[in-house]
């Protein structure tokens, strides 16, 4: 879990993924995979097989965050969102500006002594919030510039089997691919196995759609999904401790998913079924539409509090996700279903 913790401590907001990129590249290198890094930051790690059949695994490695939009004369920093934020979790939150140096600050909160009950009912838009670093304009502009990325405080907590922190979506998925790479080192594959770690999903599935990806026959997309929790519509949520979900719906290849389920049952790997009908959402859509209709499997791990500084995942679920990956590799190592 320390490995996962150090991964989660890296910054990787969409468009500013360098910090985590370095970490991922190092890990892939030590697994002895062939590496191709696109100028934009998509990372492709390949273990060549003997057959032309290619299985491509994908995880996006960007996280949601902010960029500095404006610095006011009184030293207050105004932010623009990167990715889909929930304004309800931002007030009073500690943030870090990645300027020339790291500059910590907090989103200003009006004390209840000075606000009216009506005012306290409504959450302001992020554009109307103030990031306060305690520095004045001169001090701040020495260190910070317009466009600098801003991340949630790296507050990673391990409680029993749970990991809590920002950006588990989808760096939990990145973790599973890095672990899969380690396993591939000793696995005698016939099919070519490609692991693709992609940028800018949180701002609209951009990284996955950037060409060239390796031509593939089967893509496996891993991402976070919603865990069952109070106030979240039960129709879209999954138990946090009943394993990863296997996706069904227009983006996914039903026959392939079924075969994974059968094997998972035999090997006693827990899983749940999830349905996703939307065209938005995850990289699955990106691959499905750009691949000329190649096969696609989606695997998701349920997390609590998605897109907040306190996302929560069960470590066991990530391990089970890796088990499902291994099943997929072994099952399709010799080619496709038909």
């Amino acid at each position: 879990m320390d490995y996962l913790k150090s991964l989660l401590e890296k910054a990787s907001i969409s468009g500013y993924e360098e910090d985590l990129k370095t970490f991922i590249v190092e890990k892939f290198k030590s697994s002895g995979l062939q590496l191709h890094i696109s100028p934009m930051g998509n990372i492709l790690a390949v273990k060549q097989g003997t057959s032309p059949y290619t299985i491509l695994f994908d995880a996006h490695y960007d996280q949601i965050g902010f960029v500095v939009q404006k610095i006011s004369p009184n030293g207050i920093v105004h932010l623009k969102s990167v990715g889909g934020h929930d304004p309800r979790v931002i007030l009073g939150t500690k943030l870090i500006i990645l300027g020339k140096e790291e500059v910590t600050g907090v989103i200003a909160t009006i004390p209840p002594h000075l606000s009216s009950p009506d005012e306290r009912k409504k959450v302001p838009k992020i554009a109307q919030m103030f990031l306060d670093t305690g520095l004045n304009y001169e001090q701040l502009t020495e260190l910070v510039n317009i466009g600098d990325p801003v991340i949630f405080d790296r507050k990673i907590e391990i409680i029993d089997d749970y990991i809590i922190g920002p950006g588990i979506d989808n760096r939990g998925g990145v973790y599973t691919l890095l672990k899969l790479a380690k396993w591939l080192k000793v696995y005698d594959n016939t099919a070519t196995i490609a692991l693709r770690v992609t940028i800018q999903e949180e701002v609209g599935i951009r990284g996955a759609q950037m060409l060239p990806a390796l031509p593939f026959d089967l893509a496996v997309v891993v991402d976070a999904t919603f865990a069952k929790q109070p106030l979240a519509n039960d129709n879209y949520t999954f138990d946090i401790d009943k394993g990863p979900t296997i996706m069904y719906g227009p983006n996914y290849s039903r026959e392939y998913s079924r075969r994974v389920e059968e094997k998972a049952k035999l090997k006693k790997v827990k899983f749940q079924r999830e349905v996703e009908e939307s065209v938005r959402g995850t990289n699955a859509y990106g691959y499905r539409t750009m691949s000329g209709g190649k096969a696609l499997i989606g695997i998701s791990y349920p997390i609590y509090n998605m897109h907040t500084p306190s996302e929560i995942v069960k470590y066991e679920t990530l391990k089970e996700t890796i088990e499902l990956f291994k099943i997929i590799v072994m099952e399709f190592n010799q080619g496709s279903v038909q």
Binding site: P87, R88, K122, V123, I159, L231, Y236, N305
Partner: peptide, 20 residues
């Protein structure tokens, strides 16, 4: 004991401009 106040995902929330 360390705790986290739960927060439903924005994706599944209506009226996300209202305080919980």
């Amino acid at each position: 004991i360390k705790g986290t106040i739960m927060s439903p995902p924005i994706h599944l929330s209506k009226k996300s401009e209202m305080a919980i």
